[in-house]
């Protein structure tokens, strides 16, 4: 269960306060999948980072009673001068998982081959996204925070991602920032629409998508 109550986030830029989120509340039960809808800059990534504990809200609380993944997106969470293998080793230690098992899964899923022994700064954006996504699946969380990443990679990777995420892990919770209406309608039960810092939860996904398209 995740319970976000009146979450507000301000950023300070050159002395000016920029309010990105203003009193946003929502909850997420175990196994439930919530879509995040909003235009670029509406605070989707910020909200995902707050739920993932990467940043702290300026005001409000986010309670968690299940294990929550790091925000899985196009960037972040790895060290560029370390190799894929060393990043994997570090994350395996932090989450107390056997390295061999994690490595086997990531090798199979991310299909990075010999790149795993190269520093990660030499990876393309798609390779980094595939790597971190595979790693988060290998760690096995109760709830996955997904920021657009399922649009990454080629068709084969996308198909396998869908299979791993939505079929094999159908019992997990998910917060999914996506612009793709079919994915949202296929897997999510509710949607949180963000606009100008405000957030509203809709159970009618068609309505939510219509509103999003009109924003």
């Amino acid at each position: 269960m995740i319970n976000a109550i009146d979450v507000t986030k301000d950023y300070r830029t050159e002395g000016r306060v920029n309010r990105v989120l203003s009193n946003v509340s929502f909850n997420l039960a175990k196994g439930e999948k919530l879509a995040l809808l909003g235009r670029n800059g509406s605070g989707k990534s910020t909200l995902i980072r707050l739920v993932g504990g990467v940043e702290l809200p300026t005001r409000g609380t986010i309670e968690q009673t299940m294990s929550v993944s790091w925000p899985i997106g196009l960037a972040g969470g790895f060290h560029g001068s370390l190799t894929g293998n060393d990043n994997m080793r570090f994350i395996a230690r932090v989450y107390n998982k056997p390295f061999d098992q994690i490595k086997a899964y990531v090798e199979d899923f991310a299909e990075l081959g010999k790149f795993l022994s190269e520093p990660m700064r030499t990876y393309s954006t798609g390779m980094k996204a595939r790597f971190m996504f595979a790693l988060s699946l290998a760690i096995d969380f109760d709830c996955y925070l997904i920021d657009e990443v399922i649009a990454a990679g080629d068709q084969r990777f996308q198909r396998r991602s869908h299979e791993e995420l939505f079929e094999k892990r159908a019992d997990r919770s998910m917060i999914l920032a996506s612009h793709i209406g079919e994915i949202i309608k296929a897997y999510c039960s509710r949607a949180l629409v963000l606009h100008r810092g405000r957030g509203k939860v809709f159970t009618d996904l068609d309505l939510a998508l219509d509103i999003y398209n009109d924003l």
Partner: peptide, 10 residues
């Protein structure tokens, strides 16, 4: 060390 803060346990 911002990349490390992606991991809630750290």
């Amino acid at each position: 060390n911002v990349p490390l803060l992606y991991h809630q346990r750290v």
